[in-house]
Write a protein that binds this DNA or RNA. Structure first.
Lengths: 255, 255
DNA sequence: CGTGAAGTTGAGTATGCTCAACGGTGGTGG
DNA sequence: CCACCACCGTTGAGCATACTCAACTTCACG
């Protein structure tokens, strides 16, 4: 999240992923040095198994707004996010957009039962991912069923997240949606070991609107509402402070 | 659908699942005789494995409207629907309800990563299910990884269904939601080998509304709209004919 | 600083909701 | 067997929440 901290304290620390040029990172970041492994499906693998995985892993870097793949493209790869934020969305022919979710470091992308992707994926900010050819990955899964178990667990979790989102989209008011969203971001950050209170909000109002089933104007108004009620505070761009989490929770749950 | 058709043409037809009494069906329907196995996760199992599964399987029958389990209850069982229709839903404290989906014969229920259920499940009409203690089922999975693979595939599919539903809830109009719903029912029926055109609609307007994020009144109006446009026809209660599937598809997709 | 994109605010509108009345249907009991 | 009743579904009128369109402000970046 930020530029190359030039005055680095330790010049030869384990390479927090020394900002790669597009696509050329394969050998610089073997799975063994992965900084987000504990967050990802790869946590199910031993050191040896990681080496085998590295064999067919390539790396991708995306600029803000750059697409990773589009809906209906052949689903030739699966991915693991290593840095940055992505959005995953579907479009209607007239341009209406629904964001299914945002992806953060450690998240797995590409679970699908179909030969083509069921949605599009774009970078929200600068992002890097591990890329695995689907076929190789499937073969790998056959050899290491504990990875498959992990994937099932990931899928189950995503399913319950999706159901929570259906409740939001089908039944909550704009204010409730906003409160839910901010709390989700906060909890998610904490689970990943990041700070959960002044939360980082890397996505635009338009992305938030498309995620919450609203318009940018309504998102803006809802934020203003919560701000004027003293429940949140807008810090510098991309950061929001939760000033009264309890009240936000009550709103989010629909009390 | 409807009362006991007294003037039945064939008095001893092949007993479409000779209506069991509540709960006493365990020995009458071993997995080997299951009529919906080809639709369910059990299709991944051999005859021998089915016997092992039968060992810890019990059967449940639910009357219309009867709950199977409620949100936040300890998730002690997983289920397979063998007959009838269920609805799976979440509630907000003030009573707002969102139906996450309907379950039909062959559907698996209980994928969850948590010690408690994340939603409630009620019977829509008379329904029967196989019930497996979660712990036993988990042990069973360890022994038969092909079942786990099947579950992963089921979960992936459910995930993409959920995403389609998010698009519907977040971005479609009432008319579009209705058209999408009817087409989904039709396709689902066909995939299960039932007839896909005069579709069976076992759930109430209220259930449909809670599934589509609308009110019963709006559902009713949307149905009237499609009917007046000649796209659908209301047959006897619980049955709807799709008179112009192509036009319905255009509406559903948002053209 | 200047410029363009992103975000906020305002005014008017529309889609779907609320409240209410009415109609049909199935189930029940006289 | 029929009459009644309750529930479900439909229709109508008025309203509210969120949308559209538009102007204005702020911010990031050059």
């Amino acid at each position: 999240m930020s530029g190359p901290k030039t005055p680095s304290i330790n010049p030869n620390l384990p390479q927090r992923q020394a900002k790669p040029r597009p696509e050329i990172v394969a050998d610089l970041s073997p799975c063994g040095a992965c900084t987000v492994r504990h967050l990802s499906v790869c946590s199910a693998l031993s050191a040896e198994e990681l080496v085998q995985l590295s064999d067919f892993t390539t790396h991708v870097e995306l600029q803000p707004g750059q697409p990773l793949f589009g809906e209906a493209e052949p689903a030739n790869h699966v991915f693991n996010v290593t840095a940055g934020t992505l959005k995953v969305y579907k479009l209607l022919p007239d341009g209406r957009c629904q964001v299914m979710g945002f992806l953060f470091p450690g998240d797995f992308l590409g679970l699908a039962n179909s030969a083509t992707y069921a949605f599009s994926a774009d970078a929200v900010n600068t992002a890097t991912l591990c890329r695995f050819p689907r076929k190789k990955f499937a073969e790998f899964l056959l050899k290491f069923p504990q990875m498959e178990k992990k994937l099932l667990s990931v899928a189950s979790h995503e399913l319950s997240v999706a159901q929570e989102q259906m409740l939001l989209l089908g039944r909550k008011t704009a204010k409730e949606r906003l409160a839910s969203f901010l709390l989700t971001l906060s909890r998610h950050a904490e689970r990943r070991g990041a700070q959960g209170n002044p939360i980082s909000v890397p996505m635009s109002r338009a992305d938030i609107a498309d995620y919450l089933g609203l318009t940018t104007e309504t998102v803006s108004r809802a934020i203003t509402l919560l701000k004027k009620a003293g429940l949140i505070g807008l810090e510098k761009s991309g950061s929001i402070a939760l000033l009264d989490s309890a009240a936000l929770r009550e709103i989010a749950e629909g009390f």
